[in-house]
């Protein structure tokens, strides 16, 4: 990553991932233990990971205030194209898909390495963002991994990003409050939900996004390294059977009184 701040526009890359719709109820969630993946039920889609969508929002807020070029980058199957189109419709300028059978079922180490190589290939990048974690394997290590591989400073769980010359000031969420930190560019930030809700795409933007070209890079362009972690098993843990006692009554008030009495009898209140 080379810094070219002050020379024309800023270049930002936002890494996004497709995941099975996390809003689907637990009752329809199932897995294929052989393939070690979730089975997508009929009628459910792969969608952009929630935090990644907020990472897109975070950089578009920068783009709202100053000139910059935002590239959305995703590693995934052909369905990741939809996720990239969604990023374009939100306001990203470019999109690159990293798709290859060799990239499938990558661990965090391989994923971060391939994304870092792609960012190097994109060239002069000032800022990289991604979600604090993706909603599939919930690892939360790809962002920090990319930063480590690119040897740029990394700020995790940010709630706000402001560019100020060749530096960036961020609000970071920690256990007992917040930190305001400053880092020189180029840098990487992982974005949490505290940044607020992502913007909606207009119909016009959605139409424009459909016509934009999405570059596809494969293992011809980037050689993935060897995996570090291997998944031995994927399973649904045995649920403790909890029989729910429902309180009935003529009125809501009556039910409430019964609940309070039951909690008292069980010494819970």
């Amino acid at each position: 990553m080379k810094m070219i701040v002050g020379v024309g526009e800023m270049n930002i890359v936002v890494c996004v991932k497709e995941i099975p719709d996390p809003e689907m109820p637990a009752s329809v969630f199932s897995i294929d233990p052989e393939k070690r993946r979730a089975v997508l039920p009929a009628g459910r889609k792969m969608v952009i990971s929630d935090y990644d969508e907020r990472a897109v929002e975070a950089v578009l807020r920068i783009k709202d205030t100053q000139e910059c070029r935002v590239t959305a980058l995703s590693m995934g199957g052909s369905s990741a194209i939809e996720v990239l189109r969604h990023c374009l419709s939100m306001g990203c300028d470019d999109a690159v898909l990293l798709s290859d059978p060799l990239f499938l079922d990558s661990d965090s180490f391989v994923t971060a390495s391939v994304l870092a190589a792609a960012i190097n290939k994109i060239g002069h990048v000032d800022l990289v963002t991604c979600g604090v974690e993706e909603g599939e394997w919930d690892e939360g290590q790809v962002g920090a991994g990319i930063a480590e591989l690119l040897k740029v400073p990394c700020v995790t769980a940010v709630a706000d990003i402001k560019i100020s010359g060749d530096r960036v000031v961020m609000n970071r969420v920690v256990e007992d409050g917040r930190e305001v930190v400053e880092v020189p560019l180029p840098a990487l930030a992982t974005v949490g939900s505290e940044i607020g809700e992502p913007r909606y795409s207009s119909v016009r933007k959605i139409r424009e996004a459909m016509r934009k070209e999405i570059r596809v890079w494969s293992s011809d362009d980037i050689t993935p390294p060897k995996q570090r972690n291997e998944m031995l098993a994927l399973f649904i843990p045995a649920r403790r059977e909890v029989a729910c006692e429902f309180f009935e009554g003529e009125t809501a008030e009556e039910k409430a009184v019964k609940l309070a009495e039951a909690l008292r009898a069980a010494k819970l209140i």
């Binding site: 919930d138 995996q227 570090r228 972690n229 291997e230 994927l234």
Partner: peptide
């Protein structure tokens, strides 16, 4: 052997690290 919740807590996965 490292076991962790995945898919937002809907499932669990067990990993080992061969590579380091």
């Amino acid at each position: 052997r490292k076991t962790k919740p995945v898919y937002g807590g809907n499932a669990c996965a067990t990993y080992v690290c061969y590579g380091g």
